[in-house]
Design a protein around this nucleic acid. Structure first.
Length: 466
RNA sequence: GUCCCCAUCGUCUAGUCAGGUUUAGGACACCAGCCUUUCACGCUGGCGACGGGGGUUCGAAUCCCCCUGGGGACGCCA
């Protein structure tokens, strides 16, 4: 049978990184088994759902590359279907109208809590066979089985048994005739042919109710896999209060989507000692049975490290497209620059933990006017370094072929005739060309900046001390 | 309060199901050193954990019980 999984977020805020991990697991499971991965927007709560939040979800998944199959499903467009299914349940004697007031329910609940009982509906309307007229406010409740138990065989949690006596006659249709979560989910999983439900373990307690509902519809429930939540670095539940609320913020900070996914897949799951996974490797090696049952905390430092690993493995020919927007935002035009961004990246990737870091520390390759760091100038562009710099400049003019090797030879020659250490020439040149003391190897830096710009910058540096 | 889940270095984890191969392995971070023209990368080493208590057993991180601690659920939210 074909595997069908789904991601079913409610559009009530940002897509945070914990939710993304659930989506990733679901997506991986589908891809692993050559199945389908659907996206369903759970917007039955009209008060809290917004179109902006839906867009955020779609944009986030899009950026991450967690593509979904088939059409996007909005629950809000399926209300008629839910009503019809509820009607069928009533007809079959498996659901009923209930006219109990909220006040009565609230009082009941607090009374039960006070007595140390698990709060539940007391079945007042269960066997009344009420058929309310238009003017009466009512809800529709599901007749949960009174006895026996429900066994959840969970891919992650193992076997969890719930006693039906612990469960409730849950409301499936509200007075405004919209469906509640547990009901719409069951209808949707059935209609969409979902075979594997992978979701947060905050839903584990809902599962026996849903299984009873599946049974009422004469359906075999899908397989479930309840994955633990992700905790913040402080070990608390992830919330908007944690500074990084949305995955899109990671994009803006220059993280690679594949690195985010790699980091997330290693949270609560592992494959031996392997740390770095390409997307294809994740798909090939992912195994839902090995997901941990315990929640994991986020570690920003490790995320950075993983991002760096992926940066270093990034194909240089992708860097232009990946970093263009960041360059643009900084006002750096890489398209009309004589310097190849691909080659700059090759030279910079070992020291660029994020795309933003790469862009920021590569400015001097692309702009005409570099900015000088005052203390670097003070330290390295001195009277003492003047002569070697000048000699280096003239040596460069002699170079016929502008290659790293030839530049290196020129460097060495000047170092030797002046009897100085390599760094005593390299650092002044570096400051002259980049404005600061940090750059790739000096010969590559000189080569990439190009002959005319190098000469011009050396001239400017030489004039700086006058 | 009731129900459910969880528990190995600071963090992510291997080992737990099938108890001995474990002086508990790896990774991030941190510290020291090496490499070196800067910064990185890389390399070497160090620090560092089975929450507590009872059992079972020749032997327990691994099995059982209790405690503690964390999380979740108990909604006309999802």
């Amino acid at each position: 049978m074909k595997v069908v999984t789904r991601f079913a977020p409610s559009p009530t805020g940002n897509l945070h990184i914990g939710t993304v991990r659930t989506a990733l697991f679901s997506w991986l499971y589908a891809r692993r088994h050559s199945g389908e991965f659907y996206l369903r927007i759970e917007d039955t709560d009209r008060q809290r759902s917004t179109p902006e939040a839906s867009k955020l979800i779609i944009d986030s998944l899009d950026w991450l590359g967690l593509s979904h199959d088939g059409d996007l499903v909005y629950q809000s467009e399926r209300t008629a279907i839910y009503r019809e299914r509820a009607r069928q349940l009533i007809e079959a004697g498996l659901a009923y109208h209930c006219t109990c007031s909220r006040e009565r329910l609230d009082a009941l609940r607090s009374e039960q809590m006070k007595q140390g009982l698990k709060p539940r509906y007391d079945h007042k309307c269960r066997e009344l066979g009420l058929v309310p007229d238009q003017s009466t406010e009512y809800v529709i409740r599901f007749k949960n089985p009174l006895d026996g138990s429900v066994v959840v065989r969970d891919m992650v949690q193992g076997e969890v048994i719930y006693d039906n006596s612990q469960l409730d006659d849950l409301i499936i249709i509200r007075p405004d005739r919209t469906p509640t979560y547990n009901f719409s989910v069951v209808v949707d999983e059935t209609d969409m042919g979902v075979t594997h439900v992978i979701r947060g373990d905050d839903h584990l307690n809902n599962t026996p109710r849903q299984i009873n509902l599946f049974t009422a519809f004469g359906q075999n429930p899908p397989k479930f896999g309840h994955v633990p939540m992700v905790l913040s670095a402080e070990g608390r539940k992830l919330s908007k209060r944690d500074n990084v609320a949305s995955v899109l913020e990671y994009r803006d900070m220059g993280y690679l989507p594949e690195a985010i996914l790699n980091y997330l897949v290693r949270l609560g799951w592992s494959h031996g000692d392997k740390e770095i996974f390409s997307l294809d490797e994740m798909i090939e090696l992912f195994d839902a049975e090995k997901i941990h049952r315990s929640p994991a905390s986020l570690d920003p430092k490790k995320l950075i490290w993983i991002n760096h690993q992926h940066m270093m493995e990034l194909d240089a020919k992708d860097i232009r497209q990946r970093s263009r927007k960041i360059f643009d935002d900084l006002g750096v035009d890489i398209e009309s620059s004589p310097v190849s961004v691909e080659r700059v990246f090759e030279a910079q990737k070992s020291r660029s933990k994020t795309l933003c870091e790469f862009v920021e520390r590569s400015r001097y390759f692309f702009v005409d006017e570099i900015e000088f760091d005052e203390s670097s100038v003070q330290k390295h562009l001195t009277e003492k370094t003047r002569r070697p710099l000048q000699e280096f400049r003239s040596a460069l003019t002699e170079i016929s072929e502008w290659t790293q090797e030839n530049i290196h030879t020129a460097l060495v020659a000047v170092v030797e005739t002046n009897g100085i250490k390599f760094g005593e020439l390299a650092q002044p040149v570096r400051v002259a060309l980049t404005g600061g003391t940090v750059s790739p190897g000096i010969d590559v830096t000189v080569e990439l900046i190009g002959k005319s710009r190098t000469l011009a910058r050396l001239d400017r540096a030489l004039g700086l001390g006058e």
